[in-house]
Design a binder for these strands. Sequence first.
RNA 1: GCCGAAGUGGCGGAACGGCAGACGCGGCGGUCUCAAAAACCGUUGGGGGCAACCCCGUGCGGGUUCGAAUCCCGCCUUCGGCACCA
Length: 846
Amino acid sequence: MAERYEPRQVERRWQEEWERSGIYRVDERSDAPKYYALNMFPYTSGDLHIGHWYHFGPADSHARYKRMRGYNVLEPIGFDAFGLPAEEAAINHGVHPYVWTMNNIRRMEEQLRTIGAMYDWSREIATCAPEYYRWNQWLFLKFFERGLAYRAKAPANWCPHCQTVLANEQVIGGRCERCDTLVTRRDLEQWFFRITAFAEQLLDDLDEIDWPERVKTMQRNWIGKSHGAEFRLKVAGRDDLEIPVFTTRLDTVFGMTYVVLAPEHPLVDELLAADRVSDVREYQEQARRATEIERLSTEREKTGVFLGAEAVNPAGGERVPIWIADYVLASYGTGAIMAVPAHDQRDFEFAQQFGLPIRAVIRPPDRDAGTRAAGGERNGTTPAERGGASPSTEGTVGSEGVPIAAYVDSGVMVNSGQFDGLPSDVGMERVADWFEALGIGERTVNYRLRDWLISRQRYWGTPIPVVYCPTCGIVPVPEDQLPVLLPEDAEFRPTGLSPLTYYEAFVETTCPRCGGPGRRETDTMDTFVDSSWYMLRYCNPRVDDAPFDRRAVEHWMPVDQYLGGVEHAVMHLLYARFFIKALHDMGLVSFKEPFSRLFNQGIILGPDGHRMSKSRGNVVNPDDYVQRMGADTVRCYLMFIAPWDSGGPWSPQGISGVEAFLHRVWGLVLDGVAGNAPNDHGSADERIVRLMHKMSKGVTEDIERFRFNTMLAKLMEATNSLVRLRGQASKRIWREASERLVLLLAPSAPHLTEELWHRLGHQQSVHLQSWPGYDEALIAEPMITLVIQVNSRVRDKLEVPADISEEGARRLAQESPRVQAHLDGATVRQVVYVPGRLVNIVASRA
RNA sequence: GCCGAAGUGGCGGAACGGCAGACGCGGCGGUCUCAAAAACCGUUGGGGGCAACCCCGUGCGGGUUCGAAUCCCGCCUUCGGCACCA
């Protein structure tokens, strides 16, 4: 008997040995094809929790597999090191963010090493290092030069708790993504990145990348492209004014009965009638104060006020009142709409609320006329009938004959002058032609996507490299003066202004252009800027005259396999794509997409099936398990729980099965070698060879597709079979089988297999070996189980030669006594034969 | 409200339209032990039967098919995303 496997010593020893021999150091000069395996880098929270393990363990196994397949694999690691928690620690515990962050990094490095991953530590990065963030500043300047970074005053999402503005993407259902506080709005001068300039490309290029459909859909929805038209409304009695509006339903233009501007719309002041001033001002103030959640709630009754002016409908020449209402967003389209209450649910509700006229100009398509327009072209918002051809489109009318909903589907135009009788889709085009001919409007496209607000009123981030000069205005800091360093001894007070604001030595500077006194920008950048290009930095993190080494980047990029959680589906992944497109435009990179292939792991739940949280008390500490059972056991168990992309609950008992499995492999490989070989081992050898090739095939297919759970099941199954065949095989075959098992398990249990590999007598690391192939011909079983059914119910199973003929199979089936018993006088109507699988005899009485 | 994914033993989960429940946990019985743990062997969807065997069973209701967990239609539930984007 070999001694029991002691993971604690073995794992530590091999981790040190791998470090010493540098087998994971990556060299671009290799002849092997490159493979960039990237994991979303961790935030420096200070503790590597089980969720991190769930991400990094299986991800590393996949990278290791690729390496054994002959790829030159780059699997880097680093830290997303700027962000609010560091500052909170400063405010609450008086620890400087830098100290807090660096301590956390040190601790996490230690914990990460216990995973036993093949990270190339020589490429480690931390985004809070000046050597890193100076390049955020450099990139900002490049963006600024090209008009991709700009400063503007806009109503911004403000989190009262975090005391900072947030990007649109960071507001989830009207609440702060980080702390769940209700977000309010503030008008502030802020810096933006012009991501909208790439909306079309960001949308189109999704077709080029191998990402989960789910994520692509989320991005498509986020970008929210819609086709329509913009046209200008004349204001009655004001030849100097025009109101541009955007619509996707030009076919309903004859149904416009009023116009609505967003409360913040710049034309409000111009249009405001003297006797309406107080009402309108009050409403604007109220709208400004409303939280996002209040404003966005569709449940809420519509509010608004009349401006005291009228617009002219270019379609009918009719005068319609102009209102302001907060259901119209200043930031979408033109911030103003033509309201068609008969055919838009929101306008309908508003019209009901304020007694405005409702005029139907679209009739549901006539089912008999054969002009079935496609129903539900836009995302219908009506609670009434979906589908224009349904019999009860009159469902838009309540029992008393009072309309209860707008008819929002397409149909046939009515009450629309020369356009009467046209189906919606044709009508839209005709009206667009007409407006274009009149010169009052044109076809346009609008996006839901907003520009990326990157200013943050915080300390622990990258200073925005700009100086405000009383004479020169906004002056970018010249490249050769970068980095603009964060002062080390700032004060941390939660005031809503960046701590940098109070730091005179930082703020007061000279204008780089005129040399006069200037003031530095005190806002810092959103930390998503850091993670938008870190994959480029990894390619050569020591380069000090550019953000990235172009030659190294052209070698490694794009990332072949990106792994991480689905929570970054829109934010990080969209921003990173935007960065690459911007860099591509500048000629700095040759590719257009950063991540060729994406896969999202699921989340690991507590033993109670709920999300782990301190308040629930269901948090699993990986370090405890690593201490007791070893990293390999933890890694394998995490892979075994469930399909990787679905995640699932951690089971304290469940892990023992995996632990036992690894110990079984240990005993099998070490004791089995010495097993005696009796004279007649031919049939055992044959079975083992078949078993091994079958296992290789299954394991290869599974690991390729991240099906780690079934991969391990197959390894367990094969191990169990080998245990049963122990001592029956020839020495040569047994050794081959042992080695193959070790190799196939190597990516999943890197320490155990390394130890076994060496004990089997090898000098070189198991992780430098090739992935074992398999021979399809050797997998074929000589005998198969033929299932015999009568009327689709299994009645017998026969062991037959695999190459049995159809006639042979049919005959055997019919001859089976069990089958005979079930046929018993019935007439055979049909016999279905599935080669190598089953015979189904269909029979009936009379 | 809209879009998407998923519902399978006591539990986690397997199953190219062809033996439902692989693999593992847990349970039960046994070997070893003074005993326990560990390890090992057997068994384990439900019901009926002494047995050979038989019946039922993949959220619910229909359909297609010789055959459906798998495909189609309609519900229900859960989870994710979006939610006044004109």
